[in-house]
Design a binder for these strands. Structure first.
Lengths: 332, 332
DNA sequence: GATGCTCGTGAGAGCGCTCTCACGTGACTC
DNA sequence: GAGTCACGTGAGAGCGCTCTCACGAGCATC
């Protein structure tokens, strides 16, 4: 039981050549039924499992793909269910394709050399780089090395890198328009990091709508953490004590903002309406429940995986986002 | 640049044999300095990266370890930062050991056959099974197949499987004792799933303290989700409208309970004191901030990884938990 | 009945690497 | 100065698999 049986053993037991056994194991149809049967039985009896290393060596495929979270994503990782959704989606799709998922969380140091090494040594058939830090060089490097790469989130440096992105700008626009329609006059925003495409696009969406509705923009910037949202909200309140709405670039920061507003004695949605982004589970449980923009994270993961598995179709995908109205913007 | 150079090429360029080149690449000391230099230069110039498949084939090692989340964990995965913490810890340690992390989320179907297959085909040097569903057969099967396994959370079926667990019972005891000390009389609990060791042990801790303090226990059971916490709280309130404290087996359910309490017109901590478990980031941001039991998730991940990487030391580890007192139990 | 197919099968090379073994060299011992 | 002993190096086997190629059997064609 200790020594795992080889194809050779299986072939011997089934009374065929190794080549034929290999054909059966790999599901070739050009094998006589009774022989196929015999080989299957031998596989069963011996508990044969193909050695992946040997297989990879000759096929030059690894049957696994890497999912890389660069540093800024890793930092937020523990508290942002968005990433968990992406992982799940990727995992589901990978599983269906009977491949493996290698997860790499990049540390603060330039540890992406490790990723580069790993991805170029034939250990992986493709790489998904999630939630990029703007001009991350990794996707470019890997592409040049001949490794299929797909980006989660549109790369800020335009190129022909395939990507799957959320409709961040569209979602932001709908959110801010919702505030305008509710008659809010002074609509502020807590933007995300401006070196992340999600941060940039959501701010752009906000700006576009405000410009069209001839309101002035009131902006603070956070880093997508709850804490930074709380701090940014304080700033905003200091900048414009009369603001009556805030569009926050993600839910985590919105939760922080909600807290600051409470401490400042502002009611939500009475005094100030608040909209977040992401629709994390906590949003529905906030006090008051948070209006937010839902994004299909699991679907994003699936698409990323599908794209990296079929490198021929490299046309970018932008997934729709959806406004979810809850108490935090209800007109009293 | 397309075709990656082989050791052969490196050896040729450095003017040595393949064997020597291999020695240098693998850091053997028994090589003359100037030759080592020459090989290093050749590696550099050609951009040589060892082919892992070929290496694995001969060494019978895979240099990667699998982290498996069985179904129940997977279900909660997206919203429970505990898992993210474990992943981070494992990832950090794996990275230091220059190995790879293969993540496997088990689906609802019996898809752990896939895990079994994968782990036994030599693709992996060890397996970490996280947050087990009580009597999960997987660790046993893999161990029998000769694959080093470490469990995250003590297996409910006693055996000699190595594991890393949190001090769940101890944490629960401290939490409930805290409530007793505050003079709470009717202390209820929302327990976790009773087929997970964390659920069982936390309930046991609660029961032990109550017995000692001669209070009767009031129990509802949830499944570690926010929603189930809200529902269980409703039940508890129906069972005993006069309860003045609840120890909830995890923070997510505690958040749900907090909400139910608010809707039922109970103040926290005035009418009812609430304690959670886990100390997820959201706990500090709850209204009121939640007293809870902190557990070292990242450390757990690190220990798990270290344990599976050094299969000789298989003595179980129980990590300490710590009571974090916040507003939700503050005596007014 | 000779020719040409298709189709199932086996022989064997070779993927890129590690590691054992044997060999040659130089330093040391007595 | 013969014997011993490191020590660095190279030759070569072989890890377990896939895949090309050649081969022989069976069948249809004229």
């Amino acid at each position: 039981m200790r020594a795992r049986p080889t194809l050779e053993k299986v072939a011997a037991r089934a009374g065929v050549s190794r080549a034929t056994a290999s054909r059966v194991v790999n599901g070739s149809t050009r094998v006589a039924p009774q022989i196929r049967e015999a080989v299957h039985r031998a596989v069963e009896e011996l508990g044969y499992v193909p050695n992946q290393a040997a297989r990879s060596l000759v096929t030059q495929r690894a049957d696994s793909i890497a999912l890389v979270f660069p540093e800024p994503a890793t930092r937020v990782f523990s508290d942002d269910p968005t990433f968990a959704g992406i992982i799940r989606g990727v995992s589901l799709e990978i599983e269906e394709a009977d491949k493996q998922l290698v997860l790499m969380l990049t540390g603060p140091d330039g540890s992406y050399h490790r990723v580069e090494r790993y991805a170029t040594n034939g250990h992986v058939d493709g790489v998904i780089v999630a939630s990029m830090h703007g001009s991350d060089p990794l996707p470019g490097i890997l592409t040049r090395r001949g490794v299929p790469v797909v980006c989660g989130g549109r790369p800020s440096v335009p190129g022909d890198l395939p990507y799957v992105d959320m409709d961040n700008a569209g979602g932001a626009e709908r959110a801010v328009r919702h505030l305008v329609e509710q008659g809010r006059r002074r609509i502020a925003t807590i933007a995300g990091p401006q070196d992340m495409i999600a941060g940039i696009d959501r701010l752009a969406g906000y700006r576009d709508v405000l410009r069209d509705s001839e309101r002035r923009s009131i902006v603070a910037v956070g880093d997508f953490t709850r804490e930074s949202g709380a701090i940014a909200m304080r700033q905003l309140l200091a900048d414009d004590p009369d603001l009556d709405a805030v569009f926050v670039a993600n839910d985590l920061m919105a939760l922080g903002a909600l807290r600051t507003l409470g401490q400042a004695g502002r009611t939500v949605p009475g005094d100030v309406a608040v909209i977040g982004f992401d629709d994390i589970p906590a949003a529905a449980y906030a006090e008051p429940p948070l209006t937010t923009v839902r994004q299909p994270t699991v679907e994003m993961g699936r698409r990323l995986a599908r794209m990296v598995l079929n490198p021929e179709d490299r046309t970018p995908v932008v997934l729709p986002t959806e406004l979810v109205v809850r108490e935090s913007t209800r007109r009293s």
